[in-house]
Design a protein around this nucleic acid. Structure first.
Length: 767
DNA sequence: GCAAGGTC
């Protein structure tokens, strides 16, 4: 079998300089991404080491590679790749102040939003190269991911770059990119599914119609009511809307929560010098008098053991990571925000340390070769200590008779769950990357582990024939998978104690302390970024790849904010991405937007829009509905809403203006991070303030505005400033820590006072 | 400087 990586040098005219071999007949295979193209080429043919090195070159140039392979039936394939969507919807007029717009059309994507890796020129280049290859192809195989978006990506390329070849193309259908599935799909090529492509393209249209138009309406209303003198970028969409509404609704619930008191009762019993802790069988007692009554009844009494239950409880190994699982776990153990986790995972993926991270699968096919990966991991060496990091864990796993991961139910059309590849890092990873990689490796190990087993003992103590107390104990008796997942194992929550002394039925215990404590019912717990993402997953809005981005957008637009800019131990100022704070609350802007949208077009802040859209898309897919009719209906609904919105435009804009003013003011206050009492005037507070004029941060006294204290100090403008909970013992000014770039291991700790004698001393010493 | 959805 022959595999040849074609030179991907493309001349300015877009023609390939192909080696002579390309003159032979071939089928063109169009893939969604380079990674898939590589796998497909490998599955059809085979990849020699030499050609792999040429692939690296294509990677460096950031262009998708092109492979030529001959399969086992002597059929030649040229495998090429897109880079996700190459075409997107654009507003023909391109004037953002005009709405509603419906004149939209598919065009080569101008430029990629966030990371800037896909420039307009590059998109055009890829399109030209695929176009050139398609002209000479005998047949064209559409081999993008077998899902709705994949169908659209391939459809657009085949229609726009390959002269309307969609209908005549063939479709490869695979559910994961394993050799077997790929070969099987090429042995059984299907007709393309026009319905699916139509459904997907309609999805793009509907999202554009609602999202772009309503965002423009909001932005304009603000501008108009400020007579064109102010601008604020406002947005809303099918996913942003309901996600924001989740936060707003919860805020309202929290605001309206009325705390009710209740009482809990705990008891301590004694037998032969052993103390046994127990709790009253009713966990909540609603009146104080009843609680007092029980305490009085049971104090200095004897209780009899009526039942003893002993059971072994197993907890199965965790599932392999889907992206969502990884994001919530990284939040739980490291407090990484979901978008930060995705960003790190992408780096690890691009360094070939882990598999494709944007996967919703919880399955790991055996074809990835568990044993080989574990073997490779066992030789990982800690760069500072030189010790093997995973060798003990790996050898324990390798000693098992057979390896089979505890797979979860979720699947993905193109990828397995996230797993470590076993490749060694080629550069020194940053600390966050090391953390996430360690989590992924240990999770991978843990999925092969046995169930963990703990012993649960529950005894029932009856006092005065009426009052029941429960004493329970939990004890781990077999670690199983938890051994591999340390230090991330949750452990099983303990009972009242880890051990109960040997007790028997009918034993009599003396009650030595019966106490009650007053508690209050709590309002719902606020969302954090991880739980908000889980809520989106549960409500089935957004996708694995976009959810965290959409949450970030809500932050960026100042619709939502963290209730606490402080982490528990320290105050963190000016950090980028990274750690998230404790809870999320809606700002006034967020409230205002949900309220006005609720009035004019309630669908946009409800998951119903997604639900009904999906239903209609399903109908389009199977031919029960026409795409044009569905889109027209969406336009009609939007037009209606826009008419009533425009009538009230000034009013809405005013309300938003007010909300923006309040939110900005609150933010300004929030940005002033306190560092403790001012050492100069002794009654003001030193705070980290961002200057409104220079945008620079500095330390200033709160009495500055009253003119009574001029204490101030400059700060480094880059990196994280973290408050230390101590003051300088020379000058009594607060100490802070500055962390910049990858230097998290060697932060700079200093007192903020520039005039501090300790600094003079240091300077003198240096001289 | 607008959506949501792909991708490096």
């Amino acid at each position: 079998m022959l595999l040849l990586l074609l030179s991907t040098i493309i001349s300015k005219e877009g023609h390939f300089k192909l080696s002579g071999i390309i003159e032979l007949p071939y089928d063109l295979v169009i893939c969604e991404k380079p990674d898939a193209a590589l796998r497909i080429a490998q599955a059809l043919g085979s990849l020699s080491f030499k050609k792999m090195s040429r692939l690296e070159k294509a990677k460096r140039e950031r262009l998708p590679p092109v492979f030529s392979v001959t399969d086992r039936n002597n059929q030649r394939f040229v495998v090429c790749s897109a880079l996700g969507h190459l075409y997107g919807l654009v507003d023909i007029r391109g004037n953002r102040t005009i709405y509603p717009v419906f004149d939209v059309t598919w065009r080569p994507l101008k430029k990629k939003g966030t990371h800037g890796f896909k420039t307009s020129a590059k998109t055009e280049q890829i399109i030209r190269s695929i176009s050139a290859l398609s002209h000479k192809a005998t047949r064209i195989v559409h081999a993008c991911d077998y899902d709705q978006e994949g169908e659209v990506i391939g459809y657009n390329i085949l229609q726009y770059a390959c002269d309307n070849k969609y209908e005549s193309s063939l479709r490869a259908k695979f559910s994961t990119l394993t050799d077997e599935e790929i070969r099987n799909s090429f042995d059984n090529l299907l007709r393309p599914s026009k319905g699916l492509a139509e459904a997907g393209r309609s999805r793009h249209m509907i999202d554009f119609i609602y999202g772009v138009n309503l965002s423009r309406a909001l932005t304009q209303s603000y501008k108009v009511s400020n007579e064109g003198k102010a601008f604020c970028n406002l947005s809303i969409g099918r996913v942003q809307g309901p996600t924001l509404a989740f936060v707003v609704e919860q805020d309202i619930e929290i605001r309206n929560h009325i705390s009710d008191p209740y009482w809990t009762i705990s008891g301590e019993f004694e037998k032969n010098g052993h103390r046994i802790k127990a709790h009253y069988h009713k966990q909540k007692i609603t009146t104080q008098s009843q609680a007092t009554f029980i305490v009085n009844e049971c104090t200095d009494q004897y209780g009899k053991i009526t039942t003893i239950k002993d059971e072994k409880v197993g907890s199965k190994a965790p599932n392999p990571f889907s992206l969502g699982d990884l994001q919530s776990e990284a939040y739980r153990v490291f407090k990484f925000s979901p978008s930060h986790t995705l960003a790190i995972a992408e780096k690890l993926y691009l360094d070939a340390l882990i598999s494709y991270p944007r996967s919703s699968s919880q399955k790991l096919p055996a074809s990835i070769n568990y044993k080989k990966i574990i073997l490779h991991l066992s030789s990982f060496v800690d760069s500072t200590t030189g010790g093997a990091v995973y060798s003990i864990l790996a050898s324990k796993l390798l000693a098992k008779d057979h390896l089979s991961p505890n797979e979860g139910r979720k699947t993905d059309p193109a990828h397995p769950a996230i797993y470590p590849t076993g490749e060694k890092p080629k550069r020194r990873p940053q600390s966050a990357e090391i953390k996430l990689l360690d989590l992924i490796i240990k999770r991978f190990f843990a999925t092969f582990g046995d169930p963990a087993i703990s012993q649960h003992t529950t005894i029932t103590i009856l006092v005065k024939d009426e009052h029941i107390f429960i004493a329970d104990a939990k004890k781990m008796i077999y670690e199983g998978w938890m051994y591999f997942y340390k230090p991330y194992s949750n452990g099983s929550p303990l009972g009242d104690q880890t051990n109960l002394p040997l007790l028997r039925n009918d034993d009599i215990l003396k009650s030595v302390a019966i106490t009650m404590s007053e508690k209050f019912t709590q309002p719902p717990v606020r969302f954090n970024e991880a739980s908000l993402l889980q809520k989106m997953e549960k409500e089935k809005i957004g996708t694995k790849a976009t959810r965290s981005e959409i949450i970030s957008t809500l932050f960026k637009r100042n619709y939502i904010t963290s209730t606490n800019t402080y982490s528990r131990e320290s105050i963190v100022v000016g950090g980028v991405g990274g750690r998230t704070r404790s809870g999320i609350e809606a700002t006034d802007i967020g409230f205002e937007l949900v309220q006005s949208m609720h009035k004019y077009i309630p669908n946009i802040v409800s998951t119903n829009l997604t639900r009904s859209m999906e239903e209609q898309l399903d109908n389009i897919e199977v031919g029960k509905a026409k795409s044009a009719a569905v889109i027209e209906a969406a336009m009609d609904r939007l037009k209606e809403a826009i008419v009533s919105f425009k009538e009230k435009e000034i009013d809405i804009g005013r309300q938003i203006t007010e909300a923006i003013a309040i939110t900005r003011n609150e933010q300004r206050q929030r940005q002033q991070i306190t560092l403790g009492t001012c050492p100069i005037c002794k009654n003001g507070e030193l705070r980290i303030i961002k200057s409104n004029t220079t945008q620079k941060r500095f330390v200033g006294c709160s009495n500055y505005s009253t003119g009574t204290c001029k204490a101030a100090a400059p700060l480094p403008q880059k990196g994280l400033i973290t408050k230390m909970e101590k003051i300088c013992n020379v000058c009594k000014w607060p100490m802070v820590k500055s962390t910049y770039g990858g230097q998290s291991k060697n932060p700079w700790v200093f007192c903020v006072n520039m005039q501090c004698p300790s600094k003079k001393q240091q300077q003198n010493e240096n001289i």
